[in-house]
Computed example of a mutant assay.
Amino acid sequence: MKLSEMRRAVTDEFGEGYGAVVTRDLVLRVLGGKTAEEALAAGIAPRDVWLALCEETDVPPERRYGVGLPPPRK
């Protein structure tokens, strides 16, 4: 998962405004108490950050995988 795909997935799941709050303020226990932004800055892969966000916020498994991809080109 690319960073842009993770950002798209966050926006799709949480909305633009709340998604920014979640990535900036929510402490992710599974990532050692870092926020998503801190984890990304520390070099943690966007996919791992996305999955940690999903776990912390109880995103259903069916909405965790394959999200964030742009629509296919025609």
Rank of each mutant, 00 (worst) to 15 (best):
M1Q: 04
M1L: 06
M1K: 04
K2E: 15
L3H: 05
L3E: 06
S4L: 14
S4K: 15
M6E: 01
R7L: 09
R7F: 04
R7P: 04
R8K: 13
R8F: 05
A9Q: 03
A9E: 03
V10Q: 04
T11D: 12
T11Q: 13
D12A: 13
E13K: 08
E13W: 02
E13D: 05
F14D: 04
F14W: 12
G15I: 10
G15A: 07
E16Y: 12
E16K: 13
E16W: 10
G17V: 15
Y18W: 14
G19V: 04
A20T: 14
A20H: 13
A20K: 15
A20Q: 15
A20I: 13
V21M: 12
V21P: 07
V22T: 06
T23C: 15
T23I: 12
T23Y: 01
R24T: 11
R24E: 12
L26F: 11
L26W: 07
V27A: 15
V27H: 11
L28Y: 01
L28R: 02
R29F: 12
R29C: 13
V30H: 03
V30L: 07
V30Q: 04
L31N: 05
L31S: 07
L31Q: 08
L31V: 08
L31R: 08
G32R: 06
G32S: 11
G32H: 09
G32Y: 07
G33E: 04
K34N: 12
K34D: 05
T35A: 06
A36T: 08
A36F: 03
E37Y: 03
E37G: 05
E37C: 09
E38C: 07
E38P: 08
E38S: 06
A39V: 09
A39R: 04
A41L: 10
A41K: 13
G43S: 09
I44E: 07
I44F: 05
A45V: 12
P46W: 00
P46C: 00
P46M: 01
P46N: 00
P46I: 00
R47Y: 06
R47W: 06
R47G: 10
R47A: 12
D48W: 00
D48V: 07
D48R: 08
V49G: 01
L51A: 01
L51F: 03
L51H: 03
L51M: 07
A52C: 08
L53I: 11
L53D: 00
L53F: 01
C54R: 00
C54N: 01
E56N: 12
E56R: 15
T57R: 15
T57L: 15
T57K: 14
D58H: 11
V59H: 00
V59Q: 00
V59G: 00
P60H: 04
P60S: 05
P60M: 05
P60Y: 02
P60C: 06
P61L: 05
P61H: 03
P61R: 03
E62P: 10
E62I: 14
E62K: 14
R63G: 04
R63S: 08
Y65S: 09
Y65P: 06
G66P: 02
G66R: 01
G66A: 02
G66C: 02
G66V: 00
V67N: 01
V67C: 01
G68Y: 02
G68E: 02
L69V: 15
L69N: 13
P70L: 11
P70K: 09
P71L: 14
P71A: 14
P72G: 04
P72L: 10
P72Y: 08
P72I: 09
R73Y: 14
R73D: 13
R73Q: 15
R73K: 14
K74H: 10
